[in-house]
Amino acid sequence: MIFKGRAKRQKNLLYVNRDSFTFLQRGLFQKNAPKPIVLTLGEDVMKDMEIVSGEKFVQALSYWLDNSKIAPCDLVIVLSSDVYFEYAVQSLTQGKEEDDQIKMFLDAIPFEQSVSRVIVDDSAKRVVVLSRDCYDLLLEFLEKRYMRVLALLPASLVGIKALEDIKIDQIIKNLDDYKKFNFLSDFERRFVPESFISRNAPKNTRNLKIMIVLFSTLILILGVVLYLNYFRNA
């Protein structure tokens, strides 16, 4: 019999809204599926798509993970359309006129630090802008909690309009197809090294419990045998 000491890491999803985070496990909205776990943040923590207090932000997330018993796992982060800016470039413009249009949009973004991309898809061109400070801090926090982020996806780019539209298995299956929508590469932190993950993966205690029961049974049997032999020889 082979006992494996490590449990396979789960792949789950974190949905980021304007004032909340929702942790979603696979099997969402199916019968007997785990319910979404929600963290609601006050305006003293997040406001207008930016973090007001980094300290309170980390404290709130830490308490939420600990209190909800959310174990280290692989995560796909999906951003609600409420937490980033998006602009559809006019199809009739091109060249310098198009560049000026994009620049005007970017100049109007209120973020102190931002990450932006021009996404071309099905003959449409969209500009998407995220807050760098917000997701830098979020990714750093998750990394310290042994969470490995696989993707950072704006919801509108992957066809999600609301929480109910999310199909975790489908998103995870199509991650390769979503590469051009994945903003993770725009941040310094990308993946926690596999060696680091393996050292800190949650242990499979079920096999350990089985071994303890077997060992206890053997000790009991040995005790009975010694007891019977003692009285037989007395």
Rank of each mutant, 00 (worst) to 15 (best):
D100P: 00
K125E: 14
Q10F: 06
K4C: 09
N182S: 03
K56Y: 02
P202Q: 09
S20C: 04
Q101H: 09
Q10Y: 05
Y87E: 03
K167F: 06
V76K: 08
R18G: 02
L14F: 11
R232A: 12
S80D: 05
I102E: 07
E188P: 00
A201R: 12
S62M: 05
K35T: 07
L41V: 06
Y135I: 02
K56F: 02
R117T: 10
N67C: 02
I171V: 15
R9A: 13
A124G: 00
I197S: 13
F215Y: 14
Y135D: 03
K209R: 13
L138P: 13
P202I: 10
L153H: 05
L13F: 09
V52C: 10
Q94T: 03
T40Q: 00
N32R: 12
S20Y: 01
K179N: 09
N182M: 01
G159S: 03
S114D: 03
E50Y: 00
I172C: 12
D186W: 01
V38Y: 01
A155I: 05
E55F: 08
G5D: 13
P154N: 01
K11T: 15
V127P: 01
Q170G: 00
I168N: 09
S68K: 01
R189D: 07
S198K: 14
T217G: 00
S195A: 13
E140V: 04
I219M: 14
F29S: 10
L92Q: 15
Q90V: 04
